[in-house]
Amino acid sequence: MRTDQELNAEKRIGIPRGFYSYKYSILWETFFREMGFMVVFSGESNRALFQNAVNRFEKELCLPMKMYLAHIELLLDKSDFQFIPQIEMLDDGNWTCPKIIAIAEMANVLFKDRLQALTPVVRIESSSYTIGCLERIAVNTADILDVDDKTALHALRIALIRQHEHIRAKTSALNKKSPGAIRLGVIGHSYVIGDAVCNFSILEKLRHIGVELVFPENLQKKDLDQGFSQMQVYADRYWVSDFELLGAYFCMQGDPEIDGIVYLNIFGCAIDSVLEEYIQTSKLRKKKPYIKIVLDEGQNHVSMNTRLAAFLDLIQMRKGLKNLMNEEKLFG
């Protein structure tokens, strides 16, 4: 890895926090750093950014998209180029989401000349073309930044290795459950789990009172595969999140260590509304306590705490535990 002194400070690459940057930030950061550019992140979401996002952008967009646009705006003066890929298809030709596909074009319309963006189209129609596709994107991006192909491909190779290590570290992070503790499975898009403002710090609160959490990224790919195959109604994969969320849901249903499942559902998200429907109608639905939390900008912390406390009480009662003090802990 290059040190900060070696980097070119004249062309700063901005990576706004949002959507797939939560999943692939290691890949993107390493790629640009290895090519010799300084990388600027927009930092964690905060209350001020949230207010700006809610007031300023199109009302009907989903919360993560508004947050992403706010992050882009934050980076306008801090970076020379922003990296906003148009991710259409991933894995085996699975669609991402209309909003993620159109985000770069929308940012162009909103910020006009103020925004200089690198917007490669990621369209991986078959997993066997993944490397070829990424190499093409790397070369095209390098052309815009005046970097030769060889350096770009080398940078990509190192970045892919780093990303792979990162994924492996995530999947092996799952420890044995400590006795007496509650372990919850949390499903939701990576950008909802990663952004504390989008998920209204639910995960932070749960961790604070000693609940262990398992996310889709902690699960092995083969487990997700197996979980997804349990969904009888519709065998065809269509969105990327299909596999990730439904696979994780059914996998968690079969895991004896997990006591309950939380679904972080974004209001106005088409994909969430469909997946939620599959979960509701599935035959395995009643095996474990399950709570769906719909998140939007009008969310109330007090009512959320009450719901979470009731859910945790339910789990503890099922386990035969007596100390039902969740509400006090959450509010305290």
């Binding site: 199109e58 009907e60 967009l61 209309p98 159109a102 074009e105 319309v109 909103l110 088409a270």
Partner: peptide, 11 residues
């Protein structure tokens, strides 16, 4: 709640 048309609206 129509995703494609909400995206088309700012354009």
């Amino acid at each position: 709640g129509c995703m494609p048309e909400i995206i088309a609206k700012p354009f």
